[in-house]
């Protein structure tokens, strides 16, 4: 069948009157890949995601998700997707178990509700009404409802907003488990460390376009970017930017005759790369 790609977009655009929210996006997300979309608010991440999910129709371009056009795909196609939307305040009067079991009934090949509740770490809250859940627990319920149908493609729109660091780690483990099962994941997030921890590839969107797309380690030439060497001198902290940090360190070592005080070498973080991409994009606007 040659379904190497779970999601394909070519020349995708979306306009609302004079507002061009998406201005020619090309993406090809492989089956089984975890793909992250990064970008400032208004860059078009959610619009793209919602076009893939079938919530919005596009203005122009070609889109295929699991080999079908989301605009015309039927129920059977939707049963193969899992969608975790940005925010929701629904289901407040139902318990976690009731909600998950209810939604399980919508799918032809649903997972076991108790197992899914266990997987998202809500077993202890299984009998609690959703309104009594904390923000992080509530988000995990959203994820449970997203994966209950045993989806082939899972959409996660800013899934960990408002999580404490520990909850975020647990959530990443959960997503890792889904990746191991072969689920294709499209993630949008504002957290660079999340993209770095989860994504095989990231795309940076700005003003409705993809400005860079690569693995987190190699995005925009990150791997051959300059390093920053920092150390302590009697006059205070000093740092240099260099493309040959090893040289710099050995020079410093001979200068100090051994140990260099408070030495550190830092590569540009994903966040540094991201910010410089966004800055240059905005400068060209």
């Amino acid at each position: 069948m040659g379904n190497d790609y779970a999601i394909v977009a070519e020349g995708l655009t979306k306009s609302y009157g004079d507002l061009h929210a998406v201005r020619g996006v090309d993406l090809a997300i492989e089956t089984g890949e975890c793909f992250a979309m990064l970008g400032p608010n208004g860059a078009g991440k959610t619009t793209c995601t919602e076009i893939f999910e079938g919530f919005r129709s596009r203005t122009s371009g070609r889109v295929e998700v699991l080999g079908q056009d989301p605009d015309t795909a039927a129920r059977a196609w939707k049963a193969r997707l899992g969608i975790v939307l940005q925010t929701s305040r629904d289901l407040t009067d139902l318990t976690v178990a009731e909600s998950v079991s209810h939604f399980a009934g919508y799918y032809p090949d649903a997972r076991d509700p108790a197992e899914v509740i266990e997987a998202v770490g809500l077993s202890e809250k299984s009998g609690a009404r959703s309104m009594s859940l904390s923000g992080g627990q509530r988000r995990r319920l959203d994820v449970a409802l997203g994966i209950i149908g045993n989806p082939e493609v899972l959409f996660l729109d800013e899934p960990t907003t408002g999580f404490d660091p520990e909850a975020r780690r647990q959530f990443w483990d959960l997503i890792d488990g889904l990746k191991d099962d072969g689920t294709t994941i499209l993630l949008t997030t504002h957290y660079m460390e999340e993209a770095e921890a989860l994504a095989d590839r990231v795309a940076v969107l700005a003003r409705g376009r993809v400005v860079a797309c690569d693995s987190p380690a190699e995005l925009s030439g990150r791997q051959d970017g300059t390093a920053i060497v920092t150390w302590l001198t009697p006059e205070g902290r000093k740092s240099v930017q260099t493309s040959t940090p090893t040289n710099t360190v050995s020079e410093l070592a001979s200068q100090f005759g051994g140990e260099v005080p408070e030495l550190s070498i830092a590569r540009p973080s994903l966040e540094d790369i991201y910010l410089s991409l966004i800055e240059s994009e905005e400068a060209s606007a």
Binding site: G54, F55, A79, I83, R89, D90, F103, Y106, L145
Partner: peptide, 17 residues
């Protein structure tokens, strides 16, 4: 109210007709 609190959008994203 269900349009506001996300009920309808969640249902729209599910295979429930």
């Amino acid at each position: 109210q269900e349009r506001d609190d996300g009920t309808l959008k969640r249902l729209q994203g599910s295979p429930m007709p």
